[in-house]
C-alpha cells in the first residue's frame, strides 16, 4: 500500500517542510499553512474517505482554539497540555455533533452539522472568556515541556511541522487500516456494508470523532502560532474554506488537501494587500473552475496523468 510514488510524496513533503524556512519563506505564513493543511486533511478523512460532507467543521477548529487559548492563558497550562486539552475537547464535541448528525445522510447531514456549528458560533459570541468580537488574545506561547522556548519562531515552526506530520501520518494510517477498509466500503455502497453485518453508524461516529479531534489539533496549534483564538475560526466561512481547500487539492487523495491549503492560504496572503475584499470573488471563481474543469483537484489530476493514486 505504501507504494513507491507514495514514499516519494512523503520524502518531498518532509524535505519541503524542513527546508522551507531555511529557504527564506516567512515562518508564520508556513505555520499557518501547516495548520490549515492538517485541518483540510482531517476534513478529507471524513469527506474523501467516508463520503460524509460536514459543513460545520469550523466548530471543531474553534472549540480547540478557544480551549487551548483559555487553558494556557488563564489556567497556566504548558503548551503541550493546552494543545492536548484543545484536541480532546474537539473530539468530545465531535462525539456530540456526530451522534446527532449521522442519523441523517447527504444534504441533511451537512445541514445538521452547519446548524450545530452556527449555534456554537453564537455561544462563542456571547461567552465572556472568548472575548467576543475581540477574540481571546495574548496567549503566551510558553516553553514546550518547560524546556524549548516557543517564542523563538524557528522552534515553534518545527513543533508545528512535527504536529502536522503526526496528524498527517495518523490519517494515512487510518485510511489504510482495517477500519479504513470498512470506511471505504461504506462510502462505496452503504446498504451493502450494512448487509455484510457492519453497524455503519458506529464506524461513521468513530471517524467523525477522529476527524473532529484532528481538526481540533489544527485549531489548537494555530492558537499557539497566532497567540489568538477568534470568531473567524468559528464562522461558517471557515467551514466553507476547508471544503474549498480539499476540493481544490483533490478530494480523497492523500496529498491533495495539503496542496489545496497551501494554494488557498498563499493566494489569500498574496492577494489580500493588492485586491482587498475581491479576494473572496477570486476564491469563488477558483471554486467554480475547480468544480467545472478540474473535478479531481490539483493532486487528483496529477495522479490521473501519472496513472497513480497520490
Amino acid at each position: 500500500m505504501n507504494t513507491g510514488h507514495m514514499r516519494w510524496g512523503f520524502i518531498v513533503l518532509i524535505g519541503f517542510g524542513l527546508l522551507a524556512p531555511v529557504a527564506g519563506i516567512y515562518p508564520t505564513f508556513l505555520m499557518k499553512c501547516w495548520c490549515f493543511a492538517l485541518f483540510a486533511c482531517a476534513f478529507n478523512l471524513l469527506l474523501g474517505y467516508t463520503g460524509l460532507l460536514s459543513f460545520g467543521h469550523a466548530a471543531f477548529l474553534s472549540v480547540a482554539a478557544y480551549v487551548t487559548g483559555h487553558a494556557i492563558r488563564s489556567w497556566g497550562f504548558g503548551p503541550e497540555w493546552g494543545i492536548l486539552a484543545g484536541t480532546l475537547s474537539a473530539g468530545a464535541l465531535g462525539y456530540v455533533f456526530g451522534s446527532l448528525a449521522i442519523r441523517r445522510a447527504g444534504i441533511y447531514f451537512a445541514m445538521i452539522t452547519l446548524a450545530l456549528a452556527q449555534m456554537l458560533y453564537f455561544v462563542w459570541l456571547q461567552m465572556k472568556f472568548t472575548g467576543g468580537e475581540d477574540g481571546l488574545q495574548g496567549v503566551p506561547r510558553g516553553a514546550l515541556f518547560g524546556v524549548i522556548d516557543l517564542s523563538n519562531n524557528t522552534n515553534l515552526y518545527y513543533l508545528v511541522f512535527v504536529i502536522f506530520l503526526a496528524g498527517f501520518s495518523l490519517i494515512h494510517r487510518v485510511i489504510h487500516s482495517p477500519f479504513g477498509q470498512v470506511l471505504q466500503a461504506i462510502r462505496e455502497n452503504e446498504p451493502r456494508a450494512i448487509s455484510l453485518g457492519y453497524d455503519v453508524d458506529r464506524y461513521k461516529l468513530v471517524v467523525f470523532v477522529l476527524s473532529a479531534a484532528l481538526s481540533g489539533l489544527a485549531g489548537a496549534t494555530k492558537t499557539l502560532v497566532f497567540q489568538l483564538a477568534s470568531l473567524t475560526d468559528a464562522h461558517w466561512h471557515m467551514s466553507g474554506e476547508v471544503v474549498l481547500m480539499t476540493l481544490l487539492g483533490g478530494l480523497g487523495t492523500v496529498f491533495g488537501p495539503v496542496v489545496g491549503a497551501f494554494v488557498i492560504i498563499g493566494l489569500q496572503n498574496q492577494l489580500a494587500d493588492k485586491v482587498g475584499s475581491w479576494v473572496q470573488v477570486i476564491m469563488g471563481l477558483i471554486f467554480v473552475i475547480c468544480v467545472l474543469i478540474f473535478r479531481r483537484g490539483i493532486v487528483g489530476e496529477l495522479g490521473r496523468l501519472l496513472k497513480r493514486p497520490l
Binding site: 500500500m1 487510518v174 487500516s177 482495517p178 477500519f179 479504513g180 477498509q181 470498512v182
Partner: peptide, 24 residues
C-alpha cells in the same frame, strides 16, 4: 478486497484504525 472486507468482520479488528492494513 471486496471479499476480504466481508471476511474481515468476524476477525473483530474492524474498528482498529491504528493498525496497518497488512494485518488483513
Amino acid at each position: 478486497e471486496n471479499v476480504r472486507v466481508a471476511l474481515q468482520r468476524k476477525t473483530g479488528i474492524s474498528m482498529h484504525f491504528w493498525k496497518s492494513g497488512r494485518v488483513l
